[in-house]
């Protein structure tokens, strides 16, 4: 039996003396679409940074696909696709080159990488413009290229931070279909967002964070029941504490 996609075991992380995560534990099963939600400063970004090996946690244990993020970082990285919130691209590359570069970084066969890059970009409606430089792209097109780069190697764990930002309605629908298809193939998706409504009817599991601690965790129905919520948005009633 294959290990869970992600295991967080009593994880604590401090920035100097400030505690960003405190004793956080959760498990993400394979094939889940896992929503990570919480207001500003709740620890979402820290959580994502830890499991993508960008950040070394202070205490506790973290495993991704059975590999320790600290001691087996290369194995973890090879199984992850990450689309951060901030779109950071090489403006001197075309979208096709950029996605192919991502494929090369993941040791994909060049021809297979090229085919997959073309398929993903075409799926996002960029078939006519994939040879133009990323520097000439609009924000939405850059976001699409970033997501395509993160998915090109068909990662076991796809980590998306605010993926819908900048996407138009059509692209959002295409994107959601792609995520569902990805999860249906037994892959896992972690989806961090402040738009709680997006996760209703889409995520299979959610983790609610507040002040670095777990507020609720489990399947969407279970969290509804545990916290007595009609919808996830009710978990954070104070608008000044959440992202508008």
């Amino acid at each position: 039996m294959s290990p869970p996609a992600v295991v967080f075991d009593k994880v604590t992380h401090r920035y100097d003396r400030k505690e960003a995560l405190r004793d956080v534990s959760f498990t993400i099963p394979r094939g889940a679409v896992f929503g990570l939600i919480g207001p500003n400063g709740s620890g979402k970004s820290t959580t994502l940074n830890i499991l993508t090996t960008l950040l070394s946690h202070t205490e506790g244990g973290v495993q991704v696909c059975g590999f320790d993020v600290r001691t087996e970082a290369a194995e973890v990285k090879s199984r992850i696709g990450f689309a951060p919130e901030e779109v950071q691209l090489y403006n001197g590359l075309s979208a096709r080159e950029f996605v192919e570069l991502s494929a090369a970084l993941h040791h994909m066969d060049p021809e297979a990488g090229a085919r997959r890059a073309e398929h993903l970009l075409a799926h996002f409606g960029l078939e006519d413009r994939m040879d133009e430089l990323l520097g000439s792209y609009s924000k939405g097109m850059r976001r699409k290229s970033l997501i395509a780069a993160s998915m090109v190697h068909e990662p076991e764990l796809l980590v998306l931070d605010e993926p819908l930002e900048g996407l138009d309605v059509v692209a959002q629908r295409i994107f959601k279909d792609m995520i569902r298809e990805h999860a249906a193939n037994g892959k896992t998706v972690i989806y961090s967002t402040h738009i709680l409504e997006v996760l209703e009817g889409f995520a299979t599991h959610v983790l609610l964070l507040r002040d670095g601690q777990v507020l609720g965790y489990g399947s969407v129905e279970q969290v509804h029941a545990d916290l007595g919520l009609e919808k996830l948005a009710d978990a954070f009633p104070n608008p000044s504490g959440s992202r508008p």
């Binding site: 990285k77 691209l89 991502s102």
Partner: peptide, 16 residues
Amino acid sequence: SGDHKASWLLCMGRVE
């Protein structure tokens, strides 16, 4: 460089 915006790509790939 943060200005050239590809750090994340290097860190997500397997190239150390």
